[in-house]
């Protein structure tokens, strides 16, 4: 938490935790928790989408692919900005630098065998490796069959390629493309689009506004039995309102 955020949090100028969350109602915490516990209850520092973001993990060609794919998977259209505008490529690049990028919490011991789909992920590829090999294979297919890399294709061509990857009709010996698409690319795009803006996507909570999700408000005591339009806009984990 930055000093500014910490001050804002302690001054109550960000959304206040419910009283109970401060520990006043439990025998375990009859005393007011120390300030460091309050700080420990705060989310990590926010690094929202930046206009001048430079990728850390992706190479220049990979970055071009990720941006182009984001622009097609959730396009900028009549319903508002899409994944590219909301910073989703930044989200994905930054996720590659977290334990997730290296599959730190997955069981990654061999031997590795192909199995029926019902048995789930059986590849030894980490998310980082999925992107590296998946992008290379799709770009190679595009170059061979369409004469350009994915990012240089027309939007309709890009949609067509993505549909074929999703359906498994574009295959590669170098990468499990269907799995890359559904298990990584599309999944991470959705996460970045709808996740808290602190992770780099969902800029200005636009994805939450699109669907009417109130973000981190997390208090509906007075509303849960009202089957009506919820009237308040979203709040993020750092208390910003949109």
């Amino acid at each position: 938490m930055s000093d500014t955020n910490r001050r804002a949090f302690l001054k109550g100028s960000v959304i206040l935790p419910p009283l109970a969350a401060l520990g006043v109602s439990s025998a375990s915490s009859q005393q007011t928790p120390a300030v460091d516990e309050l700080a420990a209850s705060a989310p990590a520092a926010a690094t929202p989408a930046a206009d001048d973001y430079k990728p850390t993990y992706f190479t220049a060609p990979e970055w071009a692919f990720v941006q182009a794919a984001c622009a097609r998977l959730i396009p900028n259209d009549a319903n508002g900005p899409g994944a590219l505008e909301l910073g989703v490529p930044q989200f994905i690049d930054r996720q590659m630098g977290t334990p997730y990028g290296d599959a730190a919490n997955w069981f990654m011991q061999g031997p590795f065998f192909e199995g029926a789909p019902e048995f789930g992920y059986q590849s030894q590829l980490t998310p980082k490796q999925q992107y590296r090999l998946g992008i290379k294979a799709i770009d190679a297919w595009c170059a061979k069959n369409l004469g350009r890399t994915f990012a240089a294709l027309k939007p309709e061509q890009q949609d067509d390629v993505l549909k074929k990857v999703e359906a498994g009709t574009i295959k590669s010996d170098e990468a499990p493309l269907k799995t890359f698409f559904s298990g990584f690319l599309l999944k991470n795009v959705m996460e970045g689009f709808f996740g808290d803006p602190m992770y780099g996507g969902n800029k200005n909570m636009a994805a939450w506004k699109l669907i009417g999700h109130p973000g981190a408000r997390a208090d509906f005591m007075e509303w849960v039995d009202r089957p009506a339009l919820y009237p308040y806009g979203p709040v993020d984990l750092h208390g910003r309102q949109a």
Binding site: P18, A21, L22, S29, P33, S41, A103, N105, G195, D196
Partner: peptide, 28 residues
């Protein structure tokens, strides 16, 4: 414990808890 591990706002984070299984067994 509830504070600080599950305190608001930190814990109501879909990326940390639902997408990355923050409170679940580490399968590695």
């Amino acid at each position: 414990d509830t504070v600080p591990s599950f305190a608001y706002p930190k814990v109501v984070d879909e990326i940390a808890q639902s997408a990355r299984n923050g409170l679940l067994q580490n399968l590695s």
